[in-house]
Nucleic acid binder design. Structure first.
Length: 210
DNA sequence: CCGGGTCACACGGG
DNA sequence: ACCCGTGTGACCCG
């Protein structure tokens, strides 16, 4: 089948048990397209440098961020074309009605995201998270919260897709640690289905997908 | 979810 | 083979 070849990217299932399912798909996006998306997003997105109050002091968020709602947005607040294209490609493969995408720009090895799991209140129950990576490869560390404490190190390559099931967020943490290695810029697009109570008016749906 | 502190250990030059 | 400084990352804490 033709259509199959388009998506046959040597995917591998990293986790599949009662604690969740994690699938990694290298070359989900052809290299030249992934590169074009990276270039567009790097310059077209209004990247924000956040600061957060953590414990006793205010600190920089160690990466740049942006966010878009998907679905029938106003023509004005429409996401960049590369985001819409990526969303379409992800939706075609996963069949999940994602309505939100969070973008992260890791400028170099000093940028990072600490180990965490996505907040379940901001995730529609049962729906997975899909993560598209562009640009430089960064390592993600995924570890089970309870014994057996499996630890996975996944090198997220440009053009890859990582899909983590909803249950994964209950049983695992994930993060992108700082590294002293010299690494180039990486952009990630994290697709989520946010519950109607959280998502902005419009896109949310319920039921019948997995 | 963050940076800083502590500690263990791999590595390599002398 | 050994010593030891340095780099790197794992873990812990508020």
């Amino acid at each position: 089948m033709h259509q199959l070849a388009l998506f046959d990217a040597g995917e591998s299932v990293l986790v599949e048990d009662e604690r969740g399912r994690i699938e990694y798909v290298p070359h989900f996006v052809p290299p030249s397209l992934a590169q074009a998306w990276f270039v567009e997003l790097r310059s077209a997105v209004g990247w924000e440098a956040g600061r957060r109050w953590m414990y006793d002091r205010e600190v920089d968020v160690p990466r740049l961020t942006a966010h878009f709602d998907l679905g029938q947005g106003e023509p004005d607040g429409r996401p960049p074309a590369a985001v819409r294209a990526a969303a379409g490609r992800v939706a075609t493969r996963t069949r999940v009605p994602f309505n939100s995408v969070g973008l992260n720009l890791y400028r170099d090895g000093r940028d990072s995201v600490a180990a965490h799991n996505d907040h379940l209140d901001e995730l529609a129950p049962g729906f997975p998270i899909a993560l598209v990576s562009l640009g430089a490869t960064r390592r993600m560390t995924i570890r089970a919260k309870e014994p057996p404490r499996r630890v996975l190190n996944v090198d997220l390559e440009g053009g890859s897709l990582l899909v983590m099931s909803y249950e994964t967020q209950q049983h695992y943490t994930h993060g992108v640690p700082k590294t002293a290695e010299r690494v180039g810029e990486r952009i990630s697009l994290a697709f989520r289905v946010r519950p109607a109570s959280v998502a902005s008016a419009g896109g949310a749906r319920n039921g019948r997908y997995r």
